[in-house]
């Protein structure tokens, strides 16, 4: 069985079928893009896969275990990290604290109530290392809420990486970034997932990025998978071309 298995997921909101029999499987170490026009159901799929929503039917398995229908905090503990399309950080905490609290949780140290947080020196070092990785080391003492949008996105990636996930799920990691920032961020993600042998599942609207780094691509449209395969196959697929009519893929 694949590392990540999504089987026949159905999810409706009232009358709207946001996901219809979505299935996909991702191998360990793979870099997988999930693309589709606005409202295709990408974020909804992420929400179902990480426990924020329960599917109406179908299941999600990660490393052999069923993870659909259990709350996010337990999904995360199985080794999944997720970032959000709309930046999701701890605004009135410093950059340092944002990552620190993630590490406390990862090391299960957030239960210790009688030792001062600052005395966890290994954690302090790890925080600075993670921040160095994403290029935020200089800004560690500023409040997360005053960072630029790009920096906030990077901070969210740092928070997600701090928990040392085996599967990294990023919902539009470059949304709102400048072209230059996007390239940098993507290069970084590619490097990290190679180095650490991470499996990376991400959504993205920039097709250059998608075709540049992904090993496999799943295309969603109106809640259905219309194509699934290697970048070259996807590029050649007539249905995908139709869905993206007029967009850059039709070059």
């Amino acid at each position: 069985m694949a590392f990540l298995e999504v089987r026949d997921i159905v999810k409706s909101f009232g009358g709207l079928r946001a996901l219809q029999d979505v299935s996909l499987s991702v191998e360990k170490g793979e870099i997988r893009a999930i693309i589709g026009p606005n409202g295709a159901g990408k974020s909804t799929l992420f929400n179902v896969m990480t426990g924020l929503l329960s599917p109406d039917s179908g299941e999600v398995r990660f490393d052999g275990e069923r993870i659909s229908g259990i709350p996010p905090y337990r999904v995360i503990r199985k080794g999944i990290g997720r970032s959000f399309q709309i930046t999701n950080i701890f605004p009135r905490m410093s950059v340092f604290e944002n990552v620190q609290v993630a590490l406390f949780s990862h090391h299960r140290e957030n239960r210790s109530a009688l030792t001062l947080a600052r005395n966890f020196r290994e954690v302090t070092d790890e925080v600075l290392a993670v921040l160095g990785l994403v290029g935020l080391a200089d800004k560690f003492d500023s409040s997360a809420s005053v960072l630029s949008h790009g920096d906030q996105k990077r901070l969210e990636i740092a928070i997600t990486l701090a928990c040392r996930p085996r599967l990294l799920m990023l919902d539009e990691p470059t949304a709102g970034m400048s072209r230059f920032e996007s390239r940098e961020t993507i290069a970084l993600l590619q490097k990290i997932s190679r180095e650490q042998g991470l499996t990376l599942v991400f959504t993205e609207h920039d097709m250059d990025i998608v075709f540049g780094i992904s090993e496999k691509i799943t295309v969603l449209q109106q809640g259905m998978v219309i194509a699934d395969g290697e970048p070259a196959e996807i590029k050649a697929n007539p249905e995908v071309r139709k869905a993206y009519l007029g967009e850059e893929i039709a070059e």
């Binding site: 995360i76 997720r82 950080i89 701890f90 609290v101 949780s105 109530a113 030792t115």
Partner: peptide, 19 residues
């Protein structure tokens, strides 16, 4: 403590904390 830091994170953003 780390426990206190966790509470603060929950105050700031419960959803992110659960993630």
């Amino acid at each position: 403590s780390p426990f206190g830091a966790t509470l603060k994170a929950i105050r700031e953003n419960g959803q992110r904390a659960s993630y």
